[in-house]
């Protein structure tokens, strides 16, 4: 759940060089009953979202609804302009909704769906131009995958065990990081 009050979080970070190692680590940790906060990687790791138990995003539904909004906007705009407000007879074509309405309706459907979805994506991911990033490790956008475990979620005594599991699956470095950020999102 989102937590905006507590702006400080302490993380135990395991760093890896290969996506397979991260997947194995996450599985092993989950098998031992530890919950993994998140994994940061330079590219999407196939299947990891399911392993982490991330619920399938409903952005598709958003896209559909935005698309329908676009269709309705286009159809009502054309109906109003071409039929109610100022009917035009050009080339003997009907001024109301005819096959000729298809192209513009289609374009506006796509336009609304695409922009609506992308902006929804930015909103739910709390991304905006100029946002200060929460960087677990600067190499995360290069070649390092970081497995983050929230320290408040684990017992002090288990830390060694967790580190051991990560090391045994190929972590090349273990570190801790404290992050101050009010825009943390889970």
């Amino acid at each position: 759940m989102s937590s905006y009050k507590d702006t400080t979080k302490n993380f135990l970070l395991g760093k890896f060089h290969k996506p397979g190692q991260v997947i194995n680590s996450v599985k092993a940790l989950q098998g031992e009953g530890f919950s993994v906060y998140d994994v940061y990687s330079p590219f999407p790791i196939h299947g990891l979202d399911r392993i982490l138990g991330i619920k399938r995003s409903r952005l598709t539904i958003a896209a559909f609804l935005f698309g329908m909004t676009g269709t309705c906007t286009a159809l009502s705009m054309m109906l109003y302009m071409m039929y109610f407000d100022w009917p035009m007879d050009i080339g003997g074509k009907p001024s109301y909704l005819a096959p000729a309405a298809v192209p513009v309706s289609f374009e506006l459907t796509v336009l609304f769906a695409a922009f609506g979805m992308v902006f929804t994506f930015f909103a739910v991911s709390k991304m905006y131009p100029g946002k200060k990033p929460v960087i677990m490790d600067p190499r995360v956008t290069d070649d390092v995958m970081v497995l983050a475990i929230e320290k408040s979620a684990i017992e002090e005594a288990d830390q060694d065990k967790i580190e051991g599991i990560m090391m045994s699956h190929g972590a090349f470095e273990i570190s801790e990081k404290t992050v101050h950020n009010e825009l943390f999102e889970v």
Binding site: D38, S41, L52, S125, M127, Y128, P133, V140
Partner: peptide, 11 residues
């Protein structure tokens, strides 16, 4: 835009 490579965002 504050990209940090989180799996949730990647998803």
């Amino acid at each position: 835009m504050g990209w940090n490579g989180s799996t949730r965002t990647w998803h």
